[in-house]
Amino acid sequence: MQFGEYLKLCREESNLTQKQLVDELYNHDIENFSGLDTNTLGKWERGATKPKATKQISILKYFQDFFNLPLPCLNLYNEDQIKKLILKKEIKNLFGSTKHMIYNFPSEMMSCEDIDVYLLRDSARITPVIESSTHFQQTDNSDFINLSYEKTKEFALHPDTFFLACDYKGHGLGWMFCMKIKVDVFQKLMNFEMKKSDITVEDIASYDEEGSMLLGSYFAMNVKAASMLVLRYYIYLIENQHTIKEMGGSTTSSEASKFFQNMNLKRYTTTETDSKQIVSYRQTIKDFFTSDISIQILFSKDSSIEE
């Protein structure tokens, strides 16, 4: 989807004429839209030209306030439609140079369409995947960050968590463990007033309850598998944006820290344990979707002139 298509969709869903939206944007952000007119707005919507990145972010923020949603109007699409809209090749920009979280397993012969991403609770492979993730987490060895095998499995089976795994023709390629937890519990975890090992099923937010996404264990054998896991995560965020307030996680790993930063999560606070520094990162879902990287992932590049 080009940004102009999204702009037109949001304007029409808000029942605004082009003239009304021009006036609204001017009042919203005089610095960016002081010279805007209906002719320019029309060219943006048709894709003849496009707004600069700073203007795209400002327009997104305007519609966030108008609809009171982090990414309005994309919630009108179903999962398959959203999957086609998101640009998998741009997701690679999230990963940077990493050898610990993402291996370089050969992928030239792999098609992304053949990589199966699924909820772990629906899979017969739940035990080996959790065993692998538990072993993988031992490098951090901190109750502030890690979950035991027993708790990981308990949470993976819970109907309101988002524990993913992915396979290629029956062979495991990776996992991504996230769960929406209650806002007050999330706050305690980010402040290191509570350890991840202390979380119970009562702390998990229900499907229609406001909560914050806690990012947990993540690993992939190659960038294609990593991209498909993050793609599914974006779809989940878009579909559930009305109940997600923030997202965040904590780590001792420099690679995980870089991944969080690439996702526009901000360094929040730190603590020390066993001679290691643990850093927490967090961001509101609104600011997550108005980051440069999210715009690159959500809206296709084109050759039209910026104005």
Results as ranks from 00 to 15, higher is better:
His28Met: 00
Pro128Thr: 00
Lys151Asn: 12
Thr243His: 11
Ser291Gln: 13
Ser142Lys: 14
Phe260Glu: 06
Leu21Arg: 06
Met263Arg: 13
Phe177Ser: 07
Lys196Met: 11
Asp80Ser: 13
Tyr168Met: 09
Ile181Phe: 05
Thr243Ile: 09
His171Glu: 07
Ile204Val: 15
Val22Arg: 05
Leu173Asp: 01
Ser58Lys: 01
Ala156Arg: 12
Lys50His: 04
Thr271Gln: 15
Glu202Tyr: 03
Ser294Ala: 13
Lys195Leu: 09
Leu237Asn: 00
Cys166Phe: 06
Ser227Lys: 00
Ala226Leu: 01
Gln18Thr: 06
Tyr236Glu: 03
Asp80Met: 07
Asp80Pro: 06
Ser303Cys: 05
Phe219Glu: 07
Tyr26Phe: 12
Lys83His: 13
Pro106Trp: 01
Gly249Met: 11
Thr290Ile: 12
Ile57Ala: 02
Ser132Ala: 10
Lys99Asp: 14
Cys166Asn: 08
Val117Leu: 02
Leu76Thr: 11
Ser212Tyr: 05
Asp29Phe: 00
Asn191Tyr: 11
Val183Asp: 15
Phe260Lys: 08
Ser148Asp: 10
Tyr103Glu: 15
Ile297Gln: 04
Phe163Arg: 08
Tyr218Ala: 04
Arg125Met: 08
Met109Asp: 15
Ile204Trp: 00
Leu69Met: 07
Met179Val: 09
Val117Gly: 02
Ile204Arg: 02
Ser253Val: 00
Ser217Cys: 04
Ser58Thr: 02
Gln18Tyr: 02
Phe162Ala: 09
Arg121Lys: 14
Met213Leu: 15
Gln241Leu: 00
Lys224Ile: 04
Thr98Arg: 01
Thr284Tyr: 12
Cys178Pro: 09
Leu265Ala: 06
Ile86Gln: 02
Gly172Ala: 07
Leu157Arg: 14
Ile199Met: 02
Leu85His: 10
Tyr168Leu: 12
His242Ala: 01
Arg46Ala: 11
Ser148Glu: 07
Ser107Ile: 12
Glu255Gln: 06
Arg11Ser: 01
Ser197Trp: 07
Gly248Cys: 13
Ile293Lys: 07
Glu5Thr: 05
Ser227Phe: 06
Asn39Trp: 05
Thr49Lys: 06
Thr271Cys: 15
Leu229Met: 01
Tyr233Pro: 08
Lys19Ile: 09
Ser227Trp: 01
Ile145Thr: 05
Ser206Asn: 12
Met101Gly: 15
Ile295Met: 05
Tyr236Gly: 01
Leu76Pro: 04
Glu12Asn: 14
Leu69Gln: 14
Thr38Trp: 05
Glu255Met: 03
Gly4Gln: 07
Arg232Ser: 04
Leu7Trp: 04
Lys61Met: 00
Gln138Arg: 12
Leu76His: 04
Met213Gln: 10
Asp302Trp: 06
Met263Trp: 14
Lys88His: 05
Cys10Thr: 11
Ala225Asn: 03
Asn262Ile: 14
Val223Pro: 00
Phe186Val: 15
Asn146Asp: 06
Thr161Lys: 09
Ala124Tyr: 10
Asn146Cys: 09
Thr134Glu: 10
Glu113Lys: 10
Leu94Glu: 08
Lys99Asn: 14
Tyr26Arg: 08
Ile285Ser: 05
Thr49Asn: 05
Arg232Cys: 01
Thr54Ile: 02
Thr273Asp: 13
Gln241Glu: 03
Asn191Ile: 06
Lys151Ala: 05
Ile297Phe: 04
